[in-house]
Amino acid sequence: MLNVKDRDLVIPGQLLGENLYHDLNCFRENNHVYSSVEGMVRIEGKRVKVIPSTGIYIPKEDDVIIGVITNVLVDIFFVDINSPYNCSMRGEEVSKDAMKKDLSRYLKVGDIITAKISEVNEVYSCQLIRPWKIEGGLIIDVNPKRVPRVIGKRRSMLNMIKEKTKSKIIVGQNGKIWIKGGNVDLAVRIIKRIERYAQTRGLTDKIAEILKKES
């Protein structure tokens, strides 16, 4: 039994319904399912979830992120990934015999990389693989919980922005977005707009319209 409709706004502790399956950002007490964050309810059959309106980034396996090297040790890099948890990368990712070479030849403190999270443990410490050094361009911040909207279903939104602005764009799941070349100004404006109106219906159409008008 449902107490809310699809796309309703909810606050923490609000009753969503009874005898439901629950997904992200909900919790159950005596067969009653409640929301645990403020956000928007999505219902699929008997399954409910809440899309949060805001929040911090929690590392997840297979996420592509953009981070900053904070420390280089003998065979390990430490990376700041805009999250409260520590994140490291093995030296073998940049060199075959990492122990013999000085790793700062490849990546120095302060260098910005994009990489994939290969492994996350139970206290959310994570390992990165396949780093790629980012040079030039600019990086903008968006709320990590709204990044999925910037990418869109099957990357539709991102491909559209890339095509219209002719920019190179890498979207980090941790809320950092790198943009280089093309119409950077327009790309930044569009992404900020998507962040602002993240949960709007028909957002892709609206953004397509703006892109068409301005490019």
Binding site: I11, E38, S53, R193, Y197, T200, G202
Partner: peptide
Amino acid sequence: MQKNTLLGSMKRFVGEGGNDDGN
């Protein structure tokens, strides 16, 4: 009152179509 305040603050993110010229 808390409830109304929070719901009111979220309305900004779900406004229909994002029609105003915020940017």
